[in-house]
């Protein structure tokens, strides 16, 4: 329990660092897909010419991505994860189960994924307090739910 509190407070620091580094646009899916505003002919061409997902829109250079935290499966990853998976995560939390919850639970190192999912569900209103909740706010709420409802087997 102590450990998780340390981890979560680290995460809070990390998430505010994230916000400062990436600005309000963040590195969310929307900003990536529509960055550079793909014109129709480009879409058709990319589609017809072997469907490369143009790295202009989705390319993140190895190891240097701004949306990519350097270490894997760390709590500092949560915000990047929340930003990109916002829609799917909100759906899964409202339903109390789903792949985004399972993966999130792994990031926190929870051994009680099903209970964690239920706890997230009952906290839906506080996690997604309004339609425009930012990934920083969501991440902070997730961290606090994790700090009370997540068993880490340590």
């Amino acid at each position: 329990m102590k450990k998780i509190l340390v981890v979560v407070s680290l995460a809070l620091m990390a998430s505010s660092a994230f916000a400062a580094k990436y600005g309000s646009a963040g590195c969310g899916l929307g900003s990536m897909i529509f960055e550079g505003d793909q014109t129709w002919w480009k879409q058709v061409l990319t589609a017809t010419t072997n469907g490369t997902s143009g790295s202009q829109t989705f390319g993140i250079t190895t190891g240097t991505s701004n949306c990519d935290s350097p270490a894997p499966l760390k709590v500092s990853q949560v915000q990047a994860y929340v930003e990109a998976n916002k829609l799917a995560l909100a759906n899964d939390i409202a339903k109390g189960n789903g792949e985004t919850i399972m993966n999130l639970s792994k990031v926190y190192g929870c051994s009680n994924t099903a209970d964690f999912g239920k706890a997230l569900k009952s906290n839906y209103r506080s996690i997604f307090s309004n339609a425009d909740a930012s990934s920083v706010e969501i991440t902070n709420s997730l961290n606090s739910v994790a700090s009370t409802s997540c068993n880490t087997n340590i």
Partner: peptide, 26 residues
């Protein structure tokens, strides 16, 4: 339950597009 596929990494090979002109592009 031992998988975290969403957190795995995709390795992608793609062209870096650097023009907005359709003809040059083609």
């Amino acid at each position: 339950e031992d998988r975290t596929e969403l957190l795995d990494y995709g390795i992608n090979y793609a062209a870096l597009m650097d023009t907005d002109n359709a003809l040059i592009y083609a």
